[in-house]
Design a protein around this nucleic acid. Structure first.
Lengths: 102, 102
DNA sequence: AAAAGTACGCACATTGAAGTAACTACCCGA
DNA sequence: TCGGGTAGTTACTTCAATGTGCGTACTTTT
């Protein structure tokens, strides 16, 4: 269905309104759901969970549940596959920084 | 409105369903409208013109009209700003190629 | 004379991503 | 017991992106 442009596979991951932020936020290491929310204040819980689930499905995000009987505790991190996108992300970022004007 | 993630500026350009294809198609040099259509068969005329207009507004695409009294002739090409995205695009492409599986 | 190519514009319909608001269920500290 | 923290789910709505189908105007080819 999607044409054979390989770039589309990458844009499935970092495309969309919130995924780049989610990606950047998780680049620094595993975080809890509420930490991600604090880092991206404008995203709603529902949309954030949706995005995390989809990224998990795509094999880009790992969800680990450390909950005990006492406490809820879930951590999200990027997979190795996802970390492979870092050079591309950095290239996009530096382009964006160079085009700060306007 | 959009947060200060510089990556978002780049994704404004190459985000969306058709923009990466348009970008890749124009990377090889200026093309006519109908050439772009042939390169991206599934895009409708309307959507393609919309995308080209928007990319022009964003300063990423240059539209040059070579029409004479006799012939319609319009060519589209990437601007220098847009060509600055090539390293990022290549990084995205090579990631996509490595993740061919599935 | 008719078909097909070039490059669109316009009105409308559809779809999917995102947003809103409420609810669950458990725990902790004051 | 009241407010706040953890991590969600469910139902519904909205809106921007995309798609469909038509018309325009002018050309060359058959």
């Amino acid at each position: 269905m999607t044409t054979s442009f390989p770039v589309n596979r990458a844009l499935e991951i970092i495309g969309g309104k919130w995924r780049p932020q989610v990606y950047c936020t998780l680049q620094d290491g595993p975080l809890r759901f509420s930490d991600i929310q604090r880092a991206i204040p404008d995203v709603s819980r529902k949309v954030l969970t949706d995005q995390l689930r989809e990224l998990e499905q795509l094999g880009m995000v790992r969800r680990v549940d450390y909950s005990t009987e006492k406490h809820l505790h879930v951590e999200y991190s990027l997979t190795e596959d996802a970390l492979g996108l870092q050079p591309a992300m950095n290239a996009l970022c530096s382009w964006g920084e160079c085009h700060d004007n306007k």
